[in-house]
Every structure is written in C-alpha cells, then in structure tokens.
Design a protein around this nucleic acid. Structure first.
Lengths: 147, 147
DNA sequence: CTACGACCTCAAGTCAACTTGAGGTCAAGC
DNA sequence: GCTTGACCTCAAGTTGACTTGAGGTCGTAG
C-alpha cells in the first residue's frame, strides 16, 4: 500500500500541512511512518479528512468528530446517537432553508422597507423561531459562510 | 414608543445582558437612552436580534451581519449580494443534506464496516466533494451543532 | 558534496465571540 | 434613609482551531 507524504496529502486535501500536523497531534488522524522527518500517511487518510471536513461543515467541533471514529479509524457511534445527529441536522437544514427564503424574498421584494412587508415579517417569524430557540440552547460560534 | 430595559430585552431574546452590551459595543445594536445606568432599547431591537440570530445560524460572522444593515437599522444590501448569499446558503443546505443522509445511512446500514459499503462511499463522495471545496475556499470555524 | 527546499519541533500568537470579575452606581421598595 | 438587586465599566480571561516563527534536519538534484 503506497504511502503519501504529508505534502501530497496537503495538496490532495487542500489543507495546509500545519493543519494536518495539528490534526495528528489532536488524534484526528495518524501518520504511519516517516521518510526522514517527513510524515507518511496511508491513502485512507484522505477519506478520513473528507469525513472530518463534512463534520466541520455540519457544525461539529473537532472533539465531537473525534468521538465519531473508533481508534481503528472507522466511524463508530451508537445508532441512537447517530439518529440524534441526523435530526439535529434536519432542524438546522430547515432553519437555513427559511433563512434562504427570507434573503431571496428581500432581494426580490419591491416594498420600500422590508419591515413593512408582511411576507418578510412572516418569513422572519418562521426563521426567527428556530434561530431564537437555537440561541437559547447554546451560543453558536461563527462558521464562515461558503462564499 | 415604550422602551425596553436591557433586562427585558435579555429575557425576551434569550440572550444574556453581557452579549447585548457586547453587541452594542460592536455596533450591531444600539440603545436609545438610559434609565439611571440601565440601557433602554427600542422594541425594534428584538427583531434586529432575531435577524442577527438568523445570520449567525446561517454561519455569517458578526462583522458580515453588521454589514447587512444600514445605519438606520433596516436590512440593506444590493440585490446581487443578497442573491449571492442565498446561493451560498443553498450550497450549504445541499452539503448538510448529503451529510444527513450519510449519517442516517450509517445508522441503518447493516454492513460490518461502512468503508466497504458502496452506498456509504457514494454518499461520502457526494458530500465530500462539496465539503472539500468549502475547505479549499476558506477554513470554517466550528458552529455548535443544534443539539 | 553541497545547496536547496520541504519538512520537522515547540512555544507562542491570533481571532471571533463572548464571559467573568472586581469594584461601583442607582431607583425602588420597605 | 437604607438596603437590595439589577445594572454599570473596564480589563482580562476563555475556547476552539489553527497559524506563525525561530531554529533545526533531511533527501535529492546538480
């Protein structure tokens, strides 16, 4: 099984080497050898990094993500927990959908001030209910928008 | 127009007073008076906080959100920019949907190791494409999952 | 065989978004 | 008029996820 130099992994994953070192240090990934000083990774690390990226996108903290993998590198979580995560994602998706609709409406609505547009107010209410509840559950820590 | 004490705003919005002060300090909201020392807000601040919460949920940084409001407190952004944001949200929603499906699949798939399940690999590929691209665009900064 | 560039370690710095703490002020109720 | 509790300011601390910098080590191309 051909090994990948950290440089190759960086290039193929799009992550800087410093991040890969950090991920290894915190136990998210592991290198299997050295070539001189250079870390060597199994190709499977790329899939793992993909999964990590997915988790990050979904808003999970690295610690959470670490908990989703067994020490052997396979995803391992009780079904109930996974369903819970999936449901949380569902809620999040609904919030984002409402927000997207609100934004699109604002972009297209001809009303002089959105605050006076009933459609806007309705959308804000739908989206705001969820967002408000989320704020009360736990304070979010910004996630850069995919721009 | 009746004014709201910071305590009332905190209670109604679900945000701690310290956060409200912080938001004011950073120009996201503004108080219109004092009662003794206590900040007094216009009722409209509640809607504004809702919008801020929505933006946070969508993954926008506070600085971004600040940029979405005119100095008078009304949302103000060029249509093009709004459409761009909405499209970014759409991409994000698709990523999350793929991730949700992946997680649900993992929860229900009877295969001994997910890595060997073709359905899993396909889902990862769908979701991973987007997430990988996102990673390459900009590094995300974790957003607590709505638990 | 020497130079080069890509990697190494380890400590410290950064950034956003808040929170916490010390010490102070005020309006309202008793 | 005094206490009380909710608020105030300002500086400093926290957390997560990295990045940066200084100083060092290799393997390979020339």
């Amino acid at each position: 099984m051909k090994l990948l130099d950290i440089g190759e992994v960086a290039q193929k994953s799009g992550l800087p080497a410093s991040t890969l070192r950090y991920y290894e240090e915190t136990g998210l990934i592991s290198s299997v050898a050295r070539h001189g000083l250079r870390r060597q990774f199994k190709p499977g690390v790329l899939l793992r990094l993909k999964l990590i990226a997915m988790g990050r996108t979904a808003g999970f903290a690295l610690g959470d993500i670490r908990g989703m993998f067994g020490s052997d590198g396979r995803p391992e979580l009780p079904r109930a927990e996974l369903h819970e995560r999936a449901d949380a994602l569902d809620r999040r998706i609904r919030e984002l959908t409402a927000l997207r609709d609100t934004i699109r409406h604002v972009a297209d609505c001809p009303a002089p001030s959105h605050m006076e547009c009933p459609t806007f107010r309705r959308l804000v209410n739908v989206a705001g209910r969820a967002a408000g509840a989320a704020a009360r559950r736990k304070r979010p820590r910004g996630l850069t928008p995919a721009d």
